[in-house]
Design a protein around this nucleic acid. Structure first.
Lengths: 200, 200
DNA sequence: TTCTGTAATGAACATAACGTTCATGAGCCA
DNA sequence: TGGCTCATGAACGTTATGTTCATTACAGAA
């Protein structure tokens, strides 16, 4: 492969851009970071940026792998167990904990004045996982009253709403407590609709 | 009062701006409407706009009274009954119906590519009402496991998530069905946490 | 080592939307 | 009619965006 050199250069440039963005997000919040800010911070020129990324969102989403990786792990973990016997609610706890550890970054991203885009993206990723998890149940009983799509959509929203509240209110509870609340609120309705109890 | 004339002029100008915005929202979606678009449509100049409103959001939110009015009515209706014996879930059905009737506008506002701001605003209004509704229950049993704030936040998010899904998927169910789903999903968890069943 | 093609780089430019300024004019009252 | 107030819109300054293009740096071939 003759592109190893470019890979290295590219890798370095992208890393610089990404680090600059993250630092600036913590300082000013995602919305108010401008492309020029990123360029100044990373000591790069405009076209360098635009030859790598389409825009600021593009740069950000490419660095949004943490969550995605975690979700992938969760998904394969699920596949390992016999036919979806694991639960997506492990995931919720993991995410609450992750948010607690990185709460400054999370607040800058998820907090009140922050990005629709971030939430939208997170919602998409989450509801995909949840839908995959719920599929077995919709096969069992062909005619679910409520489609897995709605359920996944609703569950993802419920989770994100609690996460947002938690962050906006400066983490008044532990991650474990938040997860407990999340389960208390959503599991009963979920079980009522699916018609069976779910593995914890 | 010597300002009746200005009131009339002002009223007319504002009406023109508001109508232009609404028409444009239906054509292009809220995000991509520019102030200049509005001005062209209404045949007005820039400073006219900025002497009336701070920006596009300001103009829009001032015309966002429909929902607010409905919520106010609901609130006073609640106050009429003896100590909050009414239910906020009447409201959910009303809102689903309202969305069904005005689905073109709703889709332009609430749909996939639309405004964070709209959702944020709606969420604020909704959770305010819900919190007011839940207060009696938090007084009864001083130590609720979950604070009314979280509950209101979560309920508003749950409702908006179902509304969004419904609109994004071109109203596959009736408003009544959507309301039923909303109740099936949220009531069990709510009752579990409040510790008592709620009036329907 | 020198040559060469590919791709990264940044200065400069073109565009788009924003919000403000200021001179003008319309409406109203005395 | 004179005079006041306030809405009005043309023009302007500003900020951020994304693109162009000539230059530069590098890795591999000779």
């Amino acid at each position: 492969m003759e592109n190893r050199k470019e890979d290295r250069r590219v890798g370095r440039t992208r890393m610089l851009l990404h680090e600059a963005l993250m630092a600036l997000i913590l300082e000013k919040g995602y919305e108010s970071v401008t492309v020029q800010d990123i360029l100044d911070r990373a000591n790069l020129g405009r076209s360098t940026f635009y030859s790598h990324y389409r825009d600021k969102d593009d740069l950000f989403l490419n660095g949004f792998d943490h969550l995605q990786t975690m979700l992938e792990m969760q998904r394969s973990q699920m596949a390992d167990k016999t036919g979806g016997e694991s639960s997506e609610f492990n995931l919720s706890l993991e995410l609450f904990r992750h948010a607690q550890q990185n709460h400054r970054l999370y607040k800058a991203l998820v907090g009140k004045h922050s990005g629709h885009m971030v939430m939208t993206h997170a919602h998409t990723l989450l509801s995909d996982v949840v839908r995959k998890y719920l599929e077995p149940y919709s096969k069992d009983k062909k005619k679910l009253v409520v489609s897995p799509e709605i359920l996944a959509h609703w569950l993802a929203s419920s989770f994100l709403s609690l996460l947002t509240w938690w962050l906006d209110n400066n983490l008044p509870h532990t991650a474990e407590k938040m997860d407990e609340i999340f389960r208390q609120l959503t599991m009963p309705g979920l079980e009522a609709v699916i018609g069976t109890s779910l593995p914890v």
